[in-house]
Design a protein around this nucleic acid. Structure first.
Lengths: 191, 191
DNA sequence: GATGAAAGTCAACAAGTGTTGACTTAATAT
DNA sequence: ATATTAAGTCAACACTTGTTGACTTTCATC
């Protein structure tokens, strides 16, 4: 039997180390430039272990971008503050230590990797659309969702990937007050 | 002397063929996945010619993303229609046959390629910022430019790269009427 | 037709890729 | 202690990458 002073087994720790290293590198340089050897080096293990634990680079990538947007339940939000709530949640997500990295991976990769782009479309259909459907049934909700997603992903692209100076240096509160009203209109206003 | 029935020499035509093939492939699969051999195959020439004519893949890429946003002179535009004018120009650019492809290359590549990301920042600083500076000197023009660029690039990302269904199927007029007012506010409204 | 340059072909290079299998070491169970 | 399994190491594989240099073909000029 194994020694359970620590709850995590050796293999679990190694798996976690590989995953963390992979997420870091994928986020920094994208899918194609992040090599199995570099990932292994960052995790201080042998490249063969990466394949042994995950089967292939593709699978490792798929595991590295697994996660949940944990979108807020807008049905419990004051109608006039829907836009604010949304952009706040978005910023918390991206600036947070755990999910931010994975989102960057996904965004970076989705520009050139079909698997990642498909994941984006899936998240949109499975999470963003239903969230908005709950709070309003006025027409063209999918168009509204598209406008909202476009704006938010544009912010993410400019702030976290391209690092456009003025977008990078904006304070969260400034982003909220600028973009909140726009999102509010995209949710409940006229198109 | 050369036979000038056609104004273009053989080498000019080959150069153009390579460039066109490269732009096509870069736009479709991004920088890293577009190989010199694939580009050569599409141009129906030998891979060695690609290097011979352009020196390296990097140089070819740099040439493939050269272009001008040809931003409109907003100083001659009715003040109340600045947003409309901007989004219309943006759509014309992206849906146009020549520039659209290059913009897609640049956007795709800028997510993982530093050179392309730098080019994005440069275009922003050299073209977008000055355009806005001409029409208004109210404070925080760089923040306004950042918000506008974020939104526009988000649309481009969702419509031309990720192909998010509702954003893809929106008609140009619908995009103009939805996003025009937002841009208008980002230019002259309160932040 | 001979000449010289331009254009194009071919095979190979060095380096880097994901992945594999045989092997060794370490930890557990009998 | 010994046998069994898990964990980790090592070298090599088959392949693709950008790039190069020697060679051949094309073709306008003398």
């Amino acid at each position: 039997m194994q020694n359970n002073k620590s709850k995590t087994s050796k293999s679990e720790r190694t798996t976690a180390a590989i995953l963390a290293a992979a997420q870091g590198l994928f986020a920094e340089v994208g899918y194609e430039r992040a090599t199995v050897r570099d990932i292994a080096a960052r995790a201080s293990i042998d490249p063969a272990m990466v394949i042994r634990y995950f089967g292939s680079k593709d699978v490792l990538f798929a595991r590295a971008i697994e996660f949940d947007l944990r979108l807020p339940n807008l049905a419990q939000t004051e109608l006039s503050r829907l836009g604010d709530t949304l952009i706040r949640h978005f910023l918390d997500l991206w600036e947070g230590p755990t999910s931010g990295g994975r989102l960057t991976i996904l965004l970076r990769a989705s520009a050139t990797n079909d698997e990642a782009a498909a994941k984006m479309r899936k998240m949109f259909a499975a999470q963003v659309l239903p969230m908005l459907a709950k709070i309003s049934d006025r027409g063209e909700m999918s168009v509204r969702a598209g406008l909202i997603s476009s704006h938010l992903m544009g912010i993410a692209l400019c702030r976290y990937v391209l690092k456009l100076p003025p977008v990078v240096s904006m304070k969260p509160e400034q982003i909220v007050s600028s973009i909140g009203p726009t999102l509010q209109r995209y949710i409940v206003g006229p198109l």
